[in-house]
Design a protein around this nucleic acid. Sequence first.
RNA 1: GGCCCCAUCGUCUAUCGGUUAGGACGGGACCCUUUCAAGGUCCAGAGAGGGGUUCGACUCCCCUUGGGGCUACCA
Length: 501
Amino acid sequence: MDMRVRFAPSPTGHLHVGNARTALFNWLLARGQGGTFVLRIEDTDLERSTKESEAKILEDLRWMGLEWDEGVDAGGAYGPYRQTERFDIYREHTARLLSSGHAYLCFCSAETLEAERKAQLAAGQPPRYAGTCRALDPAESARRHAAGEPAVVRLRVPANREVTFHDLVRGEVRFHTDQIGDPVLVRSDGIAAYNYAVVIDDQLMAITHVIRGEDHISNTPRQVLVYEAFGWTPPAFAHLSLVLGPDHAPLSKRHGATSVAEFRAKGYLPEALVNYLALIGWGTGAEELMPAMDIARRFRLEDVSHSAGVFDEDKLSWVNRHYLKTASPARLASESLPFLRDNGLVTAPLSADGHQWLEAVLPGVAASIDRLNQLPERLHSVFHFSAEAVLADSAMKQELLEPEARAVVRALAAVLDTAGPLTDRESFRSAAVQVKERTSAKGKALFHPIRLALTGAAAGPELDILVPAIDRAAALPPDAGLRTVVFCRERAAQVAALLPA
RNA sequence: GGCCCCAUCGUCUAUCGGUUAGGACGGGACCCUUUCAAGGUCCAGAGAGGGGUUCGACUCCCCUUGGGGCUACCA
C-alpha cells in the first residue's frame, strides 16, 4: 500500500517552527518514499479557529516549499479536508458506536465533573472520570437526550487492559487502561472532540503513517481504543520530539521569533529554514547543507532523534549564509527587494536598470550578512553620504588634513572624473593605481583611510565592491526606482572642496 | 500526585559492545586581506550519578537525578 501521511494543523495562529518541522518531516517522508502528503485543517475549536490563520498557515507552508498533494485548496478523493465540513461523517460514526455499546451518553454537568476532579485531587487520587453514566440504560439515555437534556458521548474504555502501539521512532509504547478515564468523543455542543475526529479522519483518509509531535503520545492510547471500537487497524505512529528554546523550555514567544512568518520577515531564505529544521533531530553525521529533496532521499524515521532539540538561531544563520552565498543574483535581487523597499531604499517600481544594478551589487554584499534584513544597514553607505559628516569625525578629519592626504583626495577626484564609470573591482583598482602614481609614498599610505572616508564605512561590504557600486549607481537613469545614490567621484570632489587649500 | 517520553562537547549530532568518542554551529588562536566579512589552518570542549550484565560498556538492564509531555466538553 502506498504511504499516505498528513499534516493537520489547527488554524489558531501562525505556523510555529515546531509545527513547521512536523510538517517538514511528513513531507520528507512522502517525497522520499513516493507517498502522498495530505493537508487537513483541524478547526473543531470554533472559538479559536480563524480563516485568517488557516490562510497564513497555507501561505507559510507554500513559502517553505512543502507542497501538499491532497487536502485543503488542493482537493482529493478523501475530502472534505476541513473538520468543520465533516460533521455529518462524525455523526454517522457516533451512531454506530452508540448502538454497538462502545460509547455512551453522559449527562454529568461540567460543575459536577469539576467538583469530582477537585475531590479526587484532594484525596491524592488521579483525576479521572468516575464513570457515573456508564451504566445508564441506552434507551433511557436516548430519551433524555431527545428531550433536550445536554449530554456528551464518551468512549467506554475497557477495564484492566494494556494498550500498546508501535512507535516508529521510539519502539513499543504501552499504557494501562486503568490510567485512562472514559474520554469525551463528542462534546455537548455536538462537535467531535480532537481524539475522536483525528481517528475517523485518519482512517477515512487512508493515512498509513501518523507523524506528529511528542505531545500527542499520551493521546495515542485513547485513539487506539477508538480504532478498536470501530474494528479498524491503527496506522503506524511516529512521535517527534519537541523543539526547545535555549533554556530548554518549549520554544515560545519569550525566546524571540517562533513562527515561520517571523523568520521569513527577518530575511531567512526558505531553503535555509527548511534545511536547518531538518537538522534538529535528524542528521547524516557529516554533511549538513543540502537541498530538501536530497534530505528526503536520505530521510528515515528510524534515524530521527528521540530527544528534544534546542533551536539554535546561530546555526540557522550559518545555514542561511550558505544559501545567501549560493543564490543567483536574480534570486537575491527579488528576495532583497521587500527589505529595501521597507527602508525606502527602493521606491517602486524598479526599472530594468535598477534591477541590473542590484544584481551586480548584491552577491558581494550578501556574502557578508546573516539575513536579508541586515541589508539596508549594510548598504547604508551606498545610499547616504555627507562630506560634512565625514569631516565631523575628528580622527577622519585629521587624516584628511594631512597635506599629502589633500593631494590624494584631489588626485582621486581628478582621476575619477576622467576614468569613466567604475563598474567592477578591476576598474576601481586601475583608478586606484592611477591615483597612487600621482602621489607620494606617504600619500599612498593614506589612500586606504581616504577610501574609508569616501565610502562612509569602516565596516561594510568589501570596498572594491562598494566603491564601484556607488559609482555605477550614479549612472542609473532617474526612473531606476532606486533612491538617490551619490557618485563616488562626487564624494571625492565634495570632500576636496571642503578641505582648506 | 499518577502515567508516558527523553538523557554524548554550550548547541545540533556520529557511534548501533572493543574508536586517541568523529563532524557541524558557536568560542579562541593564527594565516590571508592596505577595511568589515568571507575563506583556510589549528586549539579548547562531552558520555548526569549509582548499580548490574559482559573478557570488555557511551552503547544492554535496573535505580536515582534532571528535563519534557499528558492527565480538558483545546488541539
